[in-house]
Design a protein around this nucleic acid. Sequence first.
DNA 1: AGTTTTATGTAACACTTGTTACTGCGAGCC
DNA 2: GGCTCGCAGTAACAAGTGTTACATAAAACT
Lengths: 210, 210
Amino acid sequence: MIQELTEGYGHIFEKALINDIIQVGTFKEIPAGHKMMEIGEFVKSMPLLISGAIKVLREDQDGDELLLYYLEKGDTCSMTMACCMGQHRSQIRAIAEVDSKLIMVPIAKMEEWTSKYKSWRNFIFESYHNRINELLSTIDSIAFYQMDERLIQYLKEKARVNKENIIKNTHQEIAYDLHTSRVVISRLLKKLEQMGKIELHRNYLEIIDL
Amino acid sequence: MIQELTEGYGHIFEKALINDIIQVGTFKEIPAGHKMMEIGEFVKSMPLLISGAIKVLREDQDGDELLLYYLEKGDTCSMTMACCMGQHRSQIRAIAEVDSKLIMVPIAKMEEWTSKYKSWRNFIFESYHNRINELLSTIDSIAFYQMDERLIQYLKEKARVNKENIIKNTHQEIAYDLHTSRVVISRLLKKLEQMGKIELHRNYLEIIDL
DNA sequence: AGTTTTATGTAACACTTGTTACTGCGAGCC
DNA sequence: GGCTCGCAGTAACAAGTGTTACATAAAACT
């Protein structure tokens, strides 16, 4: 754990803080697809992401989903912080997008470190800031762009996060993330294929030049 | 200033912190319609809202707007914090919705108080939390609801913030906030009027029963 | 009062997206 | 092989929203 922690966070956290984290943190490996947090749950600990990616989703009353953003190496879940501090419930769902490694830190330490370590404070503030900016991007995407553009953005982002140009999802799964219907996605993907930007296959697609 | 500060924040801030704020803060009265922050600007101080309401907007490349949320009594601008700490530029525009009173605190103190006062830390975290939840509500609204529902939500929220059932805006202004066209708003408002939920007039409308 | 400006009402139409229905294809299973 | 099941392709249509155009009415101005 020491090595992974130092590698990912050594340049931003003070030595003493790193030691504290090692004392109380627990290392975890999460398989792709594993649900890490559900809407309405209370949270007891906070994740520091070492590698992999976590998909963060919002859901409406009917159970329809919408992808908000991905958490990656060096990120933490701001929702967790906000929830724990104020005894609120999670407003989001989190699912491992790929196999991921992370360190779980008990919430109790949060408050302590916030007063003790400047680097921790900065990390938390940066984290909030990043999450807010990602939510703003999500809003831009929904409010200002149409589905064809949103789909392209989605595929690019997904390829970036997964570090490969093959998107292993059915049209239905993509439709869930973008909160639209399978037919709409099939239609738009077909157009992209005809433009030579992607290649379609069963259960996956390949990005050629988006 | 002391009285206003104590009234609005006395129950959450420690005595010593209140005193610190009085030392370095400056009291300001902002007239309705005044632009308080522009996209791309750097920010030097942070507002503590005493009374009134601030409208927070997002803008796309074409200059099209979208209302994100309102800041009210007891709120602060999380963007400000995030921006100042990390030397980022504002991602949003802020305009006084009504005449408002606030205390401006120099950013330099932020960092200091965060380590010094637990109540300040909690305030900042609560503030981030609230803002994130408001962004999530905005996303819900855009992603999961159609324009007729969004319009109703908008009118209700506006009435609440303005503390009156008369909305003093043209259809065009409402259309800007919801990022749609004037014709669409006129159409939907007319329907609401026919349902007896509102009464339409030139330059304003009255909410009867939404 | 007459003119101009601005806000609103409304119709007609286009475009995007969502829905339904049906097709065929491919993979896995018996 | 024959069967089932899930995935993708496609057409036809419905609904919602955006656009253009024009008419009318209220307010503002001269």
